[in-house]
Amino acid sequence: MWRRGVVLAVLAVLLGLLMVLHAKIPNAVGNMGSLLETFLPWLGLGVPVLLIAALLRRSATALVALLLPVVAWVNLFGGLLTDKSGTGGNLTVATHNVDAGNADPTATARDIAASGADVVALEELTPAALPTYRRELAKTFRYHAVEGTVGLWSKRPLSDAAPVDIKMGWTRALRATVTAADGQQFAVYVAHLPSVRVKVEAGFTANQRDGSARALGEAIAADPVPKVMLLGDLNGTMNDRSLAPVTSQMRSAQGAAGDGFGFSWPAGFAMARIDQIMMKGMDPVAAWTMPATGSDHLPIAASVKV
């Protein structure tokens, strides 16, 4: 049983090395490193497949080799399997890519209004649907600001709303100041980074998104307000090295206070969390994914201690 299953053992070792050395896989060819990191948690599905094969083959060698990917996966993602949510939050925030092709923006707006959030960011607002969102959300949120295709609605006062240049040629990001109930002020960025695609001839086409991430990271780093929050669709996960200009300076609400992976896209069978709530100078105490609306993304929310 030690001589059988050598091929399975090699596959197990390769799977483990992919997890351990994912940061070493270069982006020079088709952004393969970022593509792998986007779906990195799903590599864990290879473990039960190889385990079943090893048991059928009665290979002790393959079973021992499987320890490498198991330990690697637990080290990377084991912390996400526990519920880290707590209490003590004094502000609830949410973000939702409402989908430009949403067939029922009225229902989506009403779902968002009923979420209990104090501050809501929306992305992919179209000129045709914007009046609907304004009308429906005005019943719940007294203040709002819209720049290009992104908007921010709040029960607390908003000020200094302005577009943020993320090097796209049109506006898909804004920044505003929110005044909390106790008088504290914090900056809120709403951003929708460029979409990415997987193409046979070009690989993972994420270069425009990566450039926008750098511009957004620079804006956040230069913000004079010590408390900063980012809400939006970043078209990338916290594991993606190309989002490091943003993720390296902010905490993920899901990573710090969520329960599970919190995948948000696609809504029908969510496989990645590309919608993010991040912050610095504030503490997330809980994070969750909300029920589906008419969008291809799931809305996400977090409770925050300002």
Rank of each mutant, 00 (worst) to 15 (best):
Pro226Cys: 09
Ser159Lys: 15
Gly258Tyr: 01
Ala222Met: 07
Ala117Tyr: 01
Asn27His: 06
Gly101Lys: 06
Glu147Cys: 12
Ala128Leu: 14
Leu216Val: 07
Trp73Glu: 03
Arg142Phe: 11
Arg209Cys: 01
Met168Phe: 09
Leu63Met: 11
Leu35Ala: 11
Pro127Phe: 10
Tyr189Leu: 04
Ala256Tyr: 08
Pro291Lys: 05
Val49Glu: 10
Thr87Lys: 11
Ala222Val: 05
Val246Ile: 12
Gln249Tyr: 04
Ile166Ser: 01
Ile274Ser: 07
Pro127Val: 08
Ala162Glu: 15
Leu125Ile: 06
Pro291Thr: 03
Gln184His: 13
Ala113Asn: 08
Leu80Gln: 15
Asp210Glu: 15
Phe261Asp: 07
Leu40Tyr: 08
Leu193Asn: 04
Ala257Val: 05
Leu231Phe: 10
Met168Ala: 11
Ala145Cys: 13
Gly255Trp: 02
Ser303Leu: 10
Ala161Cys: 13
Pro131Val: 04
Thr108Leu: 02
Ala129Glu: 08
Gly16Gln: 06
Gly183Thr: 03
Thr87Ser: 14
Thr289Asn: 08
Thr149Ala: 15
Leu81Cys: 09
Met250Cys: 10
Thr87Gln: 12
Gln185Thr: 11
Val70Trp: 12
Leu130Arg: 12
Gly232Pro: 09
Ala128Val: 15
Pro299Trp: 00
Arg110Pro: 07
Ala72Tyr: 00
Ala180His: 04
Leu80Lys: 14
Val98Trp: 07
Val13Met: 06
Lys155Gln: 15
Gly101Thr: 04
Val74Ser: 13
Thr108Ile: 03
Val10Thr: 14
Ala94Arg: 01
Ala107Val: 10
Ser59Val: 09
Leu130Trp: 10
Asn27Met: 06
Thr171Ser: 04
Gly281His: 05
Leu76Met: 08
Pro26Asn: 09
Leu81Met: 14
Pro245Phe: 02
Ala213Glu: 00
Tyr133Ser: 05
Asp233Pro: 02
Leu43Gly: 09
Val304Met: 06
Gly101Ser: 04
Ser34Met: 06
Gly33Asp: 03
Ala54Tyr: 00
Leu80Ile: 07
Phe39Asp: 10
Val225Ser: 14
Val120Pro: 04
Thr92Glu: 06
Leu298Ser: 02
Val47Arg: 11
Asp223Ser: 04
Arg57Thr: 12
Ile300Arg: 03
Leu216Glu: 01
Gly78Ile: 12
Thr293Gly: 14
Thr179Ser: 11
Glu218Pro: 02
His96Trp: 13
Ala100His: 12
Ala215Phe: 02
Asp182Gln: 11
Val49Ser: 12
Ala287Cys: 05
Ala114Thr: 11
Ala253Met: 05
Leu216Lys: 02
Arg142Gln: 14
Ala206Gly: 07
Ala103Asn: 09
Gly33Ala: 07
Asn31Met: 03
Thr179Cys: 10
Ser34His: 05
Leu234Thr: 00
Leu68Cys: 00
Trp2Val: 03
Leu17Thr: 06
Ala23Asn: 11
Val198Asn: 11
Ala113Trp: 06
Trp170Lys: 14
Ala28Phe: 13
Gly169Met: 08
Met290Gly: 08
Ala103Asp: 11
